[in-house]
């Protein structure tokens, strides 16, 4: 008698569990678990932006602003150039053997025979 009772319980319990699993709401999608499991994993990342403003802006072209920006950039470049002028050295010296002070025919004293 006791054995029969246990067997009955063993048979009924899985059946009850199965019934609970398929207890859908009216018109509920039978595959809802797939979606639920998928979103349960990523729920935190999807809800962390609640009550915040997602900034998805773009820079609109403004002719006047662009002109001011160009001017500012030009001024900065000029300033940089002036600052760096003292560091600029001639890395490629002129190898022309005639291009020196005494061989320059345009030198004022070049055609003079004596001085």
């Amino acid at each position: 008698m006791k054995h029969l009772f246990y067997i009955a319980i063993l048979l009924i319990l899985p059946a009850m569990a199965n019934c609970q699993q398929i207890a859908f709401a009216v018109d509920q999608n039978p595959h809802y678990k797939e979606s639920q499991d998928k979103y349960l994993k990523i729920a935190d990342s999807l809800t962390k932006s609640h009550s915040t403003t997602i900034q998805q802006t773009y820079k609109a072209y403004d002719w006047y602003e662009a002109k001011l920006e160009r001017k500012r950039q030009d001024r900065e470049w000029l300033h940089q150039e002036r600052m760096n002028r003292k560091y600029i050295t001639n890395y490629y010296p002129d190898y022309n053997p005639y291009n020196n002070y005494y061989s320059n025919p345009w030198r004022r004293e070049y055609h003079r025979f004596w001085w």
């Binding site: 709401a25 509920q28 999608n29 809802y32 639920q36 729920a43 999807l46 809800t47 932006s49 609640h50």
Partner: peptide, 23 residues
């Protein structure tokens, strides 16, 4: 975002206010 909120409700909201998936 809505589905994320719904998933969050499955473990945090009370049964009476929890919104179900598949509806």
């Amino acid at each position: 975002e809505l589905r994320g909120e719904k998933a969050d409700q499955q473990t945090n909201s009370s049964i009476s206010t929890m919104k179900k998936f598949g509806l």
